[in-house]
Amino acid sequence: MTLEKTFKLESQDGLHARPAGLFVKCLAPYQVTVEVELRGQKKNGKSIMSLMSLGASPGDDLKITVTGNDADSALKCIEDLFAKKFSAE
């Protein structure tokens, strides 16, 4: 199964180590591959270094593609993260 959704980065900072870390951590339990796309660059969503190297700043639109058996739950988890603007609980 492949799901695709675009999210606006509304956290105060860009996709820094902490939010990128939260993103990777939230995906860890799922059997999925995740691709994050910004300005034509596609990066592995399970790699903190790749996510940081996107250089995403507040206001950027990130296109996220999730593939795999757990795509549903994984995307749900990402939605939560963006809804909370990456603030820790």
Binding site: A17, R18, G21, V24, K25, N44, K46, S47, I48, M49, S50
Partner: peptide, 10 residues
């Protein structure tokens, strides 16, 4: 952050 980097799959 360093721990996550050390486990980075890419």
């Amino acid at each position: 952050a360093h721990l996550m980097m050390a486990q980075d799959p890419e």
